[in-house]
């Protein structure tokens, strides 16, 4: 350590500036920090991308024969479902990451800084959107390799991509809440899965909902993950015959769910954050 003079004290004359501008700057800083963590642990990114690829291969080559029915091109049916399932599972990392930050005391440091309260959470969910972009691109390549042909066209594919990102962003806020409620990162993970499993598996992600028992069919048809999966499927492969539910445009329902989840859960998560500890 050198003996450089320590000008520790100065008048607290921090720049004022618009608070919205600083909130956005804070979100960018926290998002950057979370993305650096992803880049610095390449193993985590590698294996977290490997898992959805395994799902693709599992359903494509192991279950497809048993699930396939006449008139159903299972690869076309499956891929949009797997995409949606993947971004849903990815939202768990929001919960794990926040719980980890809490546990390690980093959140405490953030709380003692003159930064936006919302930015701690928004920086995390924005970083998770960036991660999802990467994951969906990788999965698209894998899907094309195993015979998936998006017949809906490039624009529709792009719209499906955006819808998934937005839905994942909304879900992240819900899982941010879980992460803040969990006593540890490990607990956050086990708390998240009982929420995710019914949503992703009792859905139209992997099987047409008509094949489900009647008591489950209602839930499976109208719950958000199914609606998003249906919308993504419609945009990507444009085959309306597979979808039983009465909305003319699946994406309208999907969008309503997405915005609804965001509007309800984001403020709840921020409130939880303000009150936590």
């Amino acid at each position: 350590m050198t003996t450089t003079s320590l000008d520790a004290i100065a008048s607290p004359s921090l720049p004022e500036g618009g608070s919205l501008r600083w909130m956005l700057a804070n979100i960018a800083t926290i998002a950057w920090r979370n993305l650096m963590a992803i880049l610095r642990i390449p193993e985590l990114l590698f294996f977290s991308t490997l898992q959805p690829i395994m799902f693709v291969l599992l359903f494509r080559y192991v279950f497809a024969g048993a699930i396939s029915r006449p008139g159903l091109d299972y690869v076309a049916f499956l891929m949009p479902g797997i995409f949606v399932q993947t971004v849903c599972f990815g939202a768990v990392s929001t919960a794990i990451g926040l719980a980890d930050d809490l546990q390690k005391g980093l959140i405490e440091r953030f709380r003692a800084l003159p930064m936006s309260r919302t930015a701690v959470l928004a920086g995390r969910t924005v970083a998770d959107v960036c991660r999802n972009v990467f994951v969906i691109v990788v999965m698209t390549i894998v899907a094309l390799a195993v015979g998936f042909r998006p017949t809906g066209g490039a624009l529709n594919y792009f719209l499906a991509f955006l819808l998934m990102l937005l839905f994942a962003f909304a879900l992240s806020w819900g899982f941010a809440f879980v992460g803040l409620a969990a006593p540890s990162a490990e607990t956050a993970q086990v708390m998240a899965f009982p929420l995710l499993f019914p949503l992703t598996f009792a859905s139209s992600c992997f099987v047409p909902v008509q094949t489900l028992p009647s008591w489950l069919r209602g839930f499976a048809t109208y719950q958000p993950v199914s609606q998003v999966a249906d919308a993504v499927r419609q945009l990507m492969v444009g085959n309306n015959k597979l979808f039983p539910y009465p909305f003319a445009h699946e994406w309208v329902a999907a969008l309503i769910w997405t915005v609804g989840i965001l509007v309800v859960l984001a403020p709840l998560a921020v409130r939880k954050f303000r009150n936590a500890i």
């Binding site: 642990i41 390690k104 440091r109």
Partner: peptide, 13 residues
């Protein structure tokens, strides 16, 4: 400024 007994710095940065 707050410095804790638990060194709260980001491991990955």
């Amino acid at each position: 400024g707050l410095a804790g007994q638990y060194a709260t710095v980001d491991e990955n940065l």
